[in-house]
Design a binder for these strands. Sequence first.
DNA 1: TAATACCTTTATGTATACAGTATTGAATGG
DNA 2: CCATTCAATACTGTATACATAAAGGTATTA
Lengths: 251, 251
Amino acid sequence: MNERDPDRAVSHTVRAQLALRDLILSGRLRPGERISELGAVETTGVSRTPVRMALVRLEEEGLLEAIPSGGFMVKAFTERDILDSIELRGVLEGLAARFAAERGVSARDLEPLKQSLAELDELVARDAVSVEAFSAYVTMNARFHALLTELSRSAPLIRQIDRASALPFASPSGFVMAQSALPEAHQTLIIAQDHHRIVVDAIENREGARAEAVMREHARLAARNLRLALRNRTHLDLLPALALIRSPVSE
Amino acid sequence: MNERDPDRAVSHTVRAQLALRDLILSGRLRPGERISELGAVETTGVSRTPVRMALVRLEEEGLLEAIPSGGFMVKAFTERDILDSIELRGVLEGLAARFAAERGVSARDLEPLKQSLAELDELVARDAVSVEAFSAYVTMNARFHALLTELSRSAPLIRQIDRASALPFASPSGFVMAQSALPEAHQTLIIAQDHHRIVVDAIENREGARAEAVMREHARLAARNLRLALRNRTHLDLLPALALIRSPVSE
DNA sequence: TAATACCTTTATGTATACAGTATTGAATGG
DNA sequence: CCATTCAATACTGTATACATAAAGGTATTA
C-alpha cells in the first residue's frame, strides 16, 4: 500500500534515509557494524525496496561502505580522515569565496551574508558560554557558510561542497563544535568571526585571492582546535560525529 | 532468476549502470530527456529493481537529475558549469599534490609516477598528431593523474576527486581532450607535460605550495583551451562529453 | 472551433515472493 | 581440546505484482 498519511508528504525512501542517517550519526550504529536490510525494515517501518534505495544513497553520501560479499556497513574514519575532510572543506569554500569575489556580487545579493555576519557578531558579543549559546552559534554559522557557498553561483562547486559536508565533522557545524570543545572556546569564536568579516570584505572589494586565503585559514583554525580537543578530551560530547571515528580517539 | 552466466561476474545493477552511463555519455540520450524505467529495462535487459538502483547511483554521480513528479532526466550543463568543473578539479588535484609533497613520498612510491611521466614524454616526443596518438595520451594521462591523486594518501580527498571526475569533461581525459581539440594541440601537450614534470619535482623536493600551484595552472590551461576550442569549433568530435551541454555550444 | 472534463493508459513508488550464496553453528574426527 | 566439514539459517540480489498518481487523448459542450 502506498503512502496515504497526509501528515508526511515525504517518500518512504527519504524517511528511511533520514532515520538511518540519524541512527548512524547518533552513534547507535557503531562504525564497522553491518546494517541488515531486514533490521532497517523493522526500525524504519517501510519495506525493503525504499530501504535499499536509502542504503545506496547513504553509501554515496559516504556514511556507509559496501561489503564485497554484499550489504553495507557503517563506515569508520580515522582522525587523519577527519582532519583532511576539514582541510578539504576549507579548500572548497575558499574556491567558492574566490569565485564570489572574482565574479562580483551585487549589494543586494551580499545583504543576506552581511546580515548573517551581524547576527553572529551579536551572539559572540554576548559572551555566553552555555551549550545553548553554542548551539545557536552553530546554526547561524552553518547558515553563513551556506550563504557564502551560494554566492559562488557555481552549480558544480555548490554540489561538491554539499557532498563534502555529508560528513558532519567536515561541516561548518563541525567546525564550531570543535572550536567550542575547548576552554578557550570564546576566543576561538572571536577569531573565527574575524575570518568571517574578512571574507565578506574581500568579496565586496573583489579581492579573490584574499577571500580564498582567509577561508583556508578558517578551516585550519578549526582543524587545529579539533586536534587539541581530541588530545585534551574536552567537551567531546559536543561532537556527536566523533561516533564515526574508528578507534575511540587515538590515531 | 539470479545471475548464473559465468561470462559476466558483475551484478545486474552494475551492468545497468554501465549501459545507461554509456548511453548518456555517447549522446544517444539527450540532455533534459526523461529516462523511462521501462525503456531502460528493455535496453539493459535486466528488471526494474537493478535499473532503479542504477538510476539512483547515476543521479548521485551527477549525470541524472530527479524530476519532482517522479523519475529521472539526463542532466544538462552550461558551458560555465563545465569550465567550473575543470577549475574545481584543478583545485582538488592541487590539494592532492600539496598533501603528497608535505607528507613526503618515498622514492619507491614515487617510482610509478616517474615512470608514467617518462611514458608520456615518449608519446609527446613522437610528435604524432593522429587520433590514435591522442587516444593513447589520454589513457596515459589519466593514469598519471590517478597515481598523483593516490600519492596524497588521503581517503576523503581521493574519494572527492573520484566523484568530481564523474563528469567526463572534468576528468584528466577531458583535460587532454580539451587540449587536443586545438590546432596547436601538440604545443599544448608540451606545456601540459611540463606541468607534469614540475609537479613530480615539487613533490620530490617537498615543495607543497609549488606542487599545488602548478596543478591549478594545469587545470587553467585545460579550461582556456576548451574555451578556445568551443569558440573555434575545432575538433569538437574529440570531446564526447560535449553531448551534455544544454544548448549546442553557445553560452 | 476551442476549451474543458472525463476516461484510459502509462509510469512510478512500494511491497513481496523467489533464488542463490554466505555465514554461523554444531557435530565429528584427529 | 582443537580443527574441519557439513548442514541449517539468514540475508542479499533479483524479479514481479499491485496501487496510485500523472499524462494524454477523446468526446462533449459552449
